[in-house]
Amino acid sequence: MDTVIPPVSEVKEHTKSASLTEYLIEAIVNGEIEPGSKISEPELAKRFSVSRGPLREAIMRVEGLGLIERIPHVGARVTTFSQKKLIDLYAVREALEGMAARLAARNMTDEAIAALEQVLSTHSEHINQSEGQSYFHQYGDFDFHYCIIKASGNAQLIALLCDELYHLLRMYRYQSPRAHSRPNDALNEHLFIFQAIKNRDEELAEMLMRRHISSSRKLIEQQIP
């Protein structure tokens, strides 16, 4: 069967939609578009000088990541966090990332372990430079948790955590610095998890990851009324 090649105009529209998706994700995560803000298609189309087609597609993608929610009789708005929503999110995260740590201890290559050790070294340097005031949070391969999830080798787990939940967690971390007011403790917990993975101790890796995320959940319970 001959391959059907889409018209150039369709390719351009798809590319434009992908770029808009990335921009909307980052703008929402870093607070440029504030939580609770109404998503206005006409306003955004004018702002980016794009047609409504690729913009609508981008908004649907971002909505699929949970960063935009549709409220009856109100319309599309940027997600806001309640304590219950965060507790539910962290409960799911605790279970799934615990599983990811177990699988990473089983499947992680020596090269990936060496790369993860370098990530932790970078984080340690940042904490020292900031005099213990902040943890180093980056997107993708520089994120300790992201690296472990990817190393699990489980496609379903990766899709759930890296596609569906990851940007919500980034949004909360970015906009709630008080939620990570224990950078030295977090680094030490990461180092213990790393050592368990390096030692191929699946049970210990899972237990330490679950305990680590549970500590973050308890902080949320204390800080959000």
Rank of each mutant, 00 (worst) to 15 (best):
M171D: 09
A100T: 07
D163N: 15
A76D: 15
A205L: 06
G66M: 02
P54C: 14
A76C: 09
R106Q: 14
Q175K: 03
R211I: 00
R61N: 04
K218Y: 09
G31N: 13
R47Y: 15
E94Y: 06
L20W: 02
A196P: 02
Y166G: 02
C147Y: 01
L187V: 06
F192G: 07
L20K: 00
V8G: 04
I113W: 07
Q83Y: 08
V4I: 15
Q83E: 13
H145G: 13
S37C: 06
G31H: 13
D141N: 10
G140H: 06
P35M: 03
Q175N: 10
V8T: 13
K85T: 08
R217Q: 11
E221Q: 14
V29P: 04
P225Y: 14
H212C: 00
L160I: 09
R56Q: 02
Q222E: 15
I127H: 00
G140E: 07
E189A: 06
E117D: 13
D163I: 14
S121H: 13
P6G: 11
H167M: 06
L44A: 12
E131N: 13
H212T: 00
Y166M: 05
H190W: 10
A196E: 08
I25W: 03
L116S: 02
A45K: 05
V11D: 12
F142A: 01
Y90S: 07
L44C: 06
H190I: 11
E43Q: 10
L89I: 12
T21F: 09
